[in-house]
Write a protein that binds this DNA or RNA. Structure first.
Length: 288
DNA sequence: CACCCGTGGGT
DNA sequence: TACCCAAGGGT
């Protein structure tokens, strides 16, 4: 097993980006909100929204006191608006189960709505300094290349945690840096396409490089086409509900010119089923 | 486990 | 232009 930790720590010290959630004293709530926003949304789009969010809701309890509709509106165009709903639910759960304090325990975090394997460990490690393996898509790619000699990682699995654990230093502070450094390397150097191996701190011990950069193929499933999809229809409906001062919109005024009326109705029904919309009196609105 | 869920920038 | 990709999670 090559020592990745030592070069990763040295590299991270010099090259880590200055991101808001890495500032000392940023707080567990801020870290948690950032992790929700970063679930499938790029860093650069998250930063302004994160700052506005925390200014409006500096604590979980503050968010819990407002309506889910406010969270969905504030989420704006970050995408996957269920995350806004789930973040609101998590805030309510934190208020009710944890006296308004973001828990530091992985199992307690996992029990919160919208928090899975990655986010629970990210909060425990980056907000509280615990020692756990944190594995996101960047880390999986770095480990697949450096350890397994593959160009892309396979599907996510529990083995990913064991792989990360295998390169994690025993000492707590160092382990936190290695977790962050693996993610950072994957995000900025060991990127999916055209990686910058010439500046990579672990190039001299990378199994993929040593093997001559074989293309092992990408067994991830391709993203479904967005144009013409149900997701696009849902997005259009939610954009209307979020929009302007309209708190409730007559059903007949919700994307009336959508090309596929069946798809439009399906989108509305699924949004209601997800709790992202409510129908009453022939009107549609965000959840109160 | 496969599939679903938004949105926008890069190539 | 199309396609790729993004600090995932729930069902």
């Amino acid at each position: 097993m090559p020592d990745l930790a030592t070069p990763l720590i040295a590299w991270y010290r010099e090259n880590a980006r200055d991101l808001p959630w890495r500032r000392p004293g940023f707080g567990a709530w801020g870290v948690l909100v950032s992790e929700f926003m970063l679930q499938q949304t790029p860093v650069n789009r998250v930063i302004p929204h994160l700052e506005a969010w925390l200014e409006r809701w500096p604590t979980p309890t503050a968010l819990a006191m407002d309506a889910p509709a406010d969270a969905v509106r504030q989420w704006a165009n970050l995408g996957y608006p269920r995350r806004a709903l789930w973040l609101h639910r998590a805030a309510v759960e934190i208020r009710d189960r944890h006296r308004g304090v973001v828990p530091d325990d992985v199992d307690a975090l996992l029990a919160l709505t919208g928090i899975g394997d990655y986010t629970a460990r990210a909060v425990a490690v980056f907000a509280y300094g615990s020692r756990h393996p944190v594995v996101d898509t960047n880390t999986r790619r770095v480990l697949a290349r450096a350890l397994d000699g593959r160009s892309q990682p396979g599907p996510p699995s529990k083995r990913d945690l064991a792989a990360m654990e295998s390169i994690l230093p025993a000492e707590v502070a160092a382990s936190t840096i290695v977790n962050a450094a693996a993610m950072e390397l994957g995000a900025t150097v060991c990127v999916a396409r055209s990686p910058h191996c010439e500046i990579c701190p672990v190039a001299d011990r990378c199994a993929w490089r040593a093997a001559g950069y074989p293309d092992t193929g990408d067994d991830r499933r391709k993203q479904a086409k967005y144009e013409g999809s149900d997701r696009q229809a849902r997005g259009a409906v939610l954009k209307v509900l979020r929009g302007a001062a309209a708190h409730a919109v007559p059903l007949d005024d919700v994307i009336p010119d959508w090309p596929d009326a069946l798809q439009r109705d399906r989108a509305i029904d699924s949004l209601i089923a997800d709790g992202l919309a409510e129908a009453s009196g022939g009107e549609l609105r965000l959840p109160r």
